[in-house]
Structure formats: C-alpha cells, structure tokens
C-alpha cells in the first residue's frame, strides 16, 4: 500500500474512493492491516494534546464522575438488599429478628451505632464489609458489627450460618463472636455455623488459618485448611475432621471460589460447571495463577468476561 495514501488518510485528506481502496487492501492483507494500524497508532499518539491545565481540569472532572458513579451503584445495591428483606418478610417476623438481635447484642448497641443484617430469604445474601471482606449469610442468619469495626480490630456478631472471605490484615484480627464461642481469623475463607437454639458451633476452613476459642478467649483448636470443627461447649465436646471444604461451600452457597490456582484449572472448573468448552488463541502459561470467584447462578457470559478481565486473555465459548 502506498505510504502517501496512508499519510493522506491519517491526515483526513482521502476521498471515499481512496478509502475504499484502503479498506480493500487491509481486508485482503494482514500485513497491510498491521502496517496501517501501527501508522495510525503513532499518528494518534503524536497528535495527543498534553497541555497542562485543561488536562488537569478534565482529570478532576473524570475522577469525580467515577466516584459518583461508584457511590450511586453501591447505594443501589444496598437499597435492593433492603427491599428484598422488606418484601419477603412479614412485619411480625422482622420484629422478632430485631428482638433476637437486640438481646444478643444488647451490650454492643449501647456502645454505639450498629449495623445489623438478617437474611430471611432462602437465597444466600452477600454482604461487603467496610474493609473489603465478603460475608454470605444463609437463610435465617443475622450478622452485626458496630461503627468501631476496622478501627483496632474487626469484630462481627453472628447468629446462624455464614461464609467468610476475609481480606488479610494481620494488624487487625477478624473475630466472629457467637453466643457460645468465637473464631479468630488470620486472612482466610471459612464458614461458621452457630445457631442460638443449637448447642453446637460448626466451623469449616477452606483456606488460611483460624482458631476457635471459647467465650472467655481460651484457645480450643487451631484449624488447618480443609478441616471442620464441631464444638459443643456444654458437653465439652470437640470433633475435628478432614472434609472437602470447597465442595461443601459450593454446595451451600453456590459460590465457586478458587484462589491462586493455575489458570488452566480455573478454565476446567468453569467448563465443568457450565458444560461448555472455552477456547482461546492466546498462549496460556501454565504458571499463571489467578484468584477467581463466581456464583453458580451467574450467566456464563459474565463469568467469561470476568475471567478475561482477571487473566488478560480472550476467550470464546460454545453456547450449548
């Protein structure tokens, strides 16, 4: 392809006939296509305006716009959760839950503002804590924390069963308090089940490490990944066994979580979950490790898009 024609095109001087010729050339030849793309890229790059003040102004505008968009989206999310709770729950039942929470956490309510969430729905409810940690509440579960959360320590109160994915912060331990025991966490993925009417507290650890303590803070057991502990403080009974933790969490929460796993393994899991075949033209390194989470109910397209974002590769998938 003639370079003068390319330069005319980049400078906007070409006629539609000449543009037709360029289109024909780049459709027919991969080399021409790449060449024109390179030319245009450099031409574009050199013509970018870097002048100070206007750039700074538009940056500030863009940053504010981004922060507004994020706040809006996050408050919508919050509202949706609230509406869901409101409509699926009768007023009487709601009152009961509030009383239950109050009696459990009376002491803490007196201490200051408290955020309390209960999930009356059979669909798992996801909460994002202020430090970025994620909690998923199963049906009938209540979780609360006060406004001192994330100041010196991260403390939540639980009645029911929840799954925790905790961001690592060794300076601020994460503590799950229940009526009969507490779980101290060191950056991790785990599940705690402690229902008021039952005597036992069950803890499942998927990754990281946690220690189970009694209400006075005395250490009962340290768990390793893949272990389940069942503790009954009244009978002074403790049972620790090895279990397929990820599968149990998948079963109970329909959340697939893979952390620091080879990308090929992640692709395999997605393929099996959706009965599909992912394909890519990119070269995929066996050593690339990624952390990846998705809800089993999510659309395959969304999951693949997320995988593309996280991995930096492009994928196509068969639709059946």
């Amino acid at each position: 392809m003639d370079d003068n024609l390319i330069i005319d095109y980049l400078e906007g001087r070409t006629t539609p006939e000449e543009e037709k010729e360029i289109l024909n050339n780049i459709s027919a030849s991969a080399e021409d296509r790449r060449h024109l793309a390179d030319m245009k890229a450099v031409h574009h790059w050199l013509s970018i305006d870097d002048t100070g003040l206007s750039g700074e102004k538009s940056f500030v505008k863009a940053r504010d716009s981004l922060n507004r968009a994020i706040s809006k989206k996050e408050s919508q999310k919050h509202q949706r959760k609230f509406v869901k709770i409101f409509w699926t729950f009768s007023v009487a039942a709601c009152l009961l839950v509030i009383i239950a929470v109050f009696s459990l956490n009376r002491k803490h309510i007196l201490n200051g503002n408290i955020a309390s969430f209960c999930n009356p729905d059979s669909v798992v409810m996801r909460l994002d804590l202020p430090d970025g940690s994620i909690v998923c509440l199963r049906e009938g579960t209540t979780l609360s924390y006060n406004n001192k959360y994330d100041i010196k320590k991260r403390e939540v109160w639980l009645n029911g069963e929840a799954f925790f994915d905790i961001t690592k912060n060794s300076g601020k331990p994460f503590i799950v308090k229940t009526e009969k025991a507490m779980v101290i966490v060191h950056g991790t993925v785990f599940n705690v089940k402690a229902t008021g009417h039952e005597q036992e507290i069950e803890t499942i650890l998927a990754s990281g490490s946690v220690s189970l303590r009694n209400t006075r803070g005395k250490n009962i057991v340290e768990l390793k990944p893949g272990q389940q502990a069942i503790f009954n403080p009244h009978k002074d009974y403790l049972e620790v066994k090895q279990i397929p933790a990820w599968n149990i969490l998948l079963d109970r929460y329909h959340v697939v979580m893979i952390s620091e796993a080879p990308i090929l393994e992640v692709i395999d899991i997605i393929q099996k979950t959706y009965h599909t075949q992912l394909e890519t033209n990119d070269e995929i390194s066996e050593n690339q490790l990624i952390t990846f989470k998705f809800q089993k109910s999510a659309a395959l397209g969304d999951v693949v898009e997320m995988l593309e974002l996280v991995s930096g590769h492009e994928f196509t998938f068969s639709s059946d």
């Binding site: 539609p16 543009e19 289109l23 780049i26 296509r33 024109l36 793309a37 390179d38 890229a41 930096g312």
Partner: peptide, 22 residues
C-alpha cells in the same frame, strides 16, 4: 465516511496491547 468506519472497525483488533509492540 462509511469506508472510514469499516477501516476503523477492521483495524480495531490490531490494537491489542499483547500483540502489538508499537
């Protein structure tokens, strides 16, 4: 022009950061 549009659409895939050293 319509051709300019088609040209840009054709070129778009060439700008992949992983495949284009420029």
């Amino acid at each position: 022009s319509w051709f300019a549009r088609r040209i840009d659409e054709t070129l778009a895939s060439e700008y992949d950061i992983d495949r284009n050293d420029v």
